[in-house]
Amino acid sequence: MATLELNDLSKIYDDAQGRETAVDSLDIDIRDGEFLVLVGPSGCGKSTTLRMIAGLETVTNGTITIGDREVQSLSPSEREIAMVFQSYALYTQMTARRNMAYGLKHSTELSKQERHKRVDEIAELLDITELLDDKPDEMSGGQKQRVALGRAIVRDPDVFLLDEPLSNLDAKLRARMRTELQQLQSDLDVTVVYVTHDQTEAMTMADRIAVMNDGELQQVAPPEVAYDHPENEFVATFLGSPSMNTFETTTDVTATELRFRYEGTTLASVPRESVELSQDERVTLGLRPEDVRLFDDSKDGSFAATVTVSEYQGNDNFVHLSVDDRDLMARVPPDTYPDPGETVGVTVSPRDVFLFDSDTGTALKTYGAPDEQTAQTRQSVSEP
Rank of each mutant, 00 (worst) to 15 (best):
R176D: 14
M177V: 03
R178Q: 10
R178M: 04
R178V: 04
E180K: 07
L181H: 01
L181W: 01
Q182P: 02
Q182H: 09
Q182Y: 03
L184H: 09
L184W: 09
L184I: 09
Q185Y: 09
S186Q: 15
D187Q: 15
D187F: 10
D187L: 12
D187Y: 10
L188V: 05
D189G: 12
D189L: 07
D189P: 07
T191Q: 08
V192T: 14
V192P: 07
V192F: 15
V193F: 06
V195E: 04
T196V: 04
H197G: 07
D198H: 07
Q199Y: 09
T200M: 10
T200A: 13
A202V: 06
M203I: 12
M203R: 08
T204H: 10
M205R: 10
M205D: 09
A206G: 04
D207S: 08
R208N: 11
R208K: 14
I209K: 07
A210H: 11
A210C: 10
A210G: 12
A210F: 11
A210Q: 11
V211K: 06
V211C: 08
V211L: 07
V211P: 07
N213C: 08
N213S: 13
D214A: 15
G215Q: 05
L217P: 03
Q218F: 06
Q219V: 06
Q219W: 05
Y227Q: 03
Y227E: 03
Y227F: 13
D228F: 14
D228V: 01
N232C: 02
E233W: 00
E233P: 00
V235I: 00
A236I: 00
A236M: 02
A236S: 03
A236E: 00
T237A: 04
F238K: 01
F238L: 02
G240Q: 03
S241D: 11
P242Y: 01
P242E: 02
S243W: 03
M244F: 01
N245Y: 00
T246L: 00
T246Y: 00
E248Q: 11
T249N: 04
T249R: 03
T249K: 02
T250Y: 04
D252Q: 14
V253I: 14
T254Q: 03
T254I: 02
T254G: 03
A255P: 04
A255C: 05
R259N: 12
F260S: 06
R261S: 10
R261T: 12
R261D: 11
Y262M: 02
E263T: 10
G264V: 07
L267W: 01
L267I: 01
L267N: 01
S269Q: 13
V270S: 07
V270H: 05
V270D: 06
E273R: 14
S274W: 09
E276A: 14
E276V: 13
D280S: 14
E281A: 14
R282L: 12
V283M: 06
T284D: 05
T284R: 11
T284H: 02
L285D: 00
G286N: 10
R288D: 03
R288A: 04
P289W: 09
E290K: 13
D291H: 15
D291I: 04
D291K: 11
D291S: 14
V292Y: 02
R293A: 12
R293M: 12
L294Q: 03
D297T: 01
K299Q: 13
D300P: 01
